[in-house]
Amino acid sequence: MNDDAPPRRIWLCADDYGMAEGVNRAIRDLISRGRLNATSVMVVGAAIGRTEVAALQEVAASSPRCAIGLHATLTAPFRPLTMYFRPLDGGLFLPFPKLLRAGLLRRLDPGLIEDELSAQFAAFKELFGRAPDFVDGHQHAQLFPQVRDAFLRAVKEAAPTAWVRQGGRLQPLARRLGAPKALVLDVLSAQFRKRATASGLAFNPAFAGAYDFSKAFDFGELMGDFLDGLPDSGLVMCHPGFVDETLESLDPLTTQRESEHAFLAGDRFPTLLAANKVTLG
């Protein structure tokens, strides 16, 4: 590492604000500590409303600038805002493997997806009084075939100055092959970047943060790997939260969220950032 090089300024984004009150509290706590500089809001979540939005706006305003984005949601166990959205599974969005499969088989209706995303943009604007700073997707659905074109059209219409999240990495091939989940995101993101460029939309140059949530990991060690080689303006995704009944009913990612919060709130994290010459810009 070049000791004379300026610090790399990255985005550390907490996903899922609005999913559950415990998730919201953890994210606000980290913003207040200056340990996050972005969060994406799920407007179809179980814990989103005027009170939760006001609390986020207040803490973001009192800390170094924190970007607030839309966490576009198209997968179960959440429900669409548009009454005519299809396909559904028991009144809910499809689980993400089914949505990805349907996109690969060209069985989705991009017009319905674009209408649903437009409704989510309108809900965000109603809550926050403005368009989002950036837009990403729950379970990376914005990268899926057919979804990505509808997603980019909706962003271009509702938030043309927002940047969008791509999920590709800038690492040697040997390292990328060792992480199957991240490799899938690399493949999906290649076409997404081409289409975003053609649409005139900005995106993060590199991405990190994907790991196997079913296994026990030291999140500090994972974060060190995420930061290694991440370029200026690169993005690390995280999912801090406190476990509550709502979270347990909606998402399998529970105790790992508390582990992420504990590391990001603790003393090891700023030390790790300094050792890697990284700052949250």
Rank of each mutant, 00 (worst) to 15 (best):
Q57C: 12
I27Q: 05
M42S: 08
L94P: 07
N37M: 05
L56A: 09
T73V: 05
A46Q: 09
A76M: 06
T51F: 04
D89M: 14
S63G: 14
V53Q: 03
L81K: 01
I68M: 07
F78Q: 08
L74K: 02
T39K: 04
I68Y: 02
F85L: 01
R35L: 04
Q57A: 12
T82M: 00
S63C: 13
R86S: 14
A67G: 15
I27M: 06
L30R: 06
S63K: 05
F85Y: 10
V53A: 09
F85K: 00
A76R: 07
R28V: 04
L74R: 01
T75W: 00
T51L: 06
P97D: 12
S40R: 04
Y84S: 12
L81A: 05
Q57L: 15
G34W: 03
A54R: 15
P95M: 08
T75P: 04
N37W: 02
G90K: 04
V41H: 02
A76V: 07
R50S: 13
E58V: 12
T82Q: 01
L88T: 14
A61L: 13
I27H: 05
A26C: 12
G45W: 00
S40T: 13
M83Q: 15
H71M: 06
V44S: 00
V53K: 02
G91C: 03
A76T: 15
G90F: 01
L92I: 07
A38R: 12
A46T: 11
P80D: 00
L88M: 11
Q57I: 12
R86A: 13
P87V: 06
V41F: 01
R65S: 15
K98S: 13
V59M: 06
R86T: 12
G34F: 03
Y84P: 04
A38L: 05
A55D: 15
A38Y: 02
G34S: 09
S40E: 13
V44N: 01
S32R: 11
P77N: 15
I48S: 02
E52D: 14
V43G: 01
F96L: 13
L94T: 13
T39Y: 02
V59R: 10
A61C: 13
Y84W: 08
L81P: 01
A26M: 06
A60K: 05
F93Y: 12
L30Q: 06
V59F: 04
V53G: 03
A55T: 15
P97F: 07
A26L: 05
A76N: 14
G90P: 06
I48D: 03
Q57D: 15
A60G: 12
F93H: 02
A67H: 11
D89R: 15
G34Q: 08
A47S: 12
P77A: 08
S63F: 04
A26T: 13
L81Y: 00
E58N: 09
L70H: 02
A72D: 02
G69L: 02
M83V: 11
A38I: 06
A38G: 13
R25M: 09
L36G: 08
E52Q: 10
A38S: 14
F93G: 00
G49I: 07
F85W: 01
I68Q: 05
F96N: 10
A72H: 00
R50E: 13
L92T: 11
A47P: 07
S62R: 15
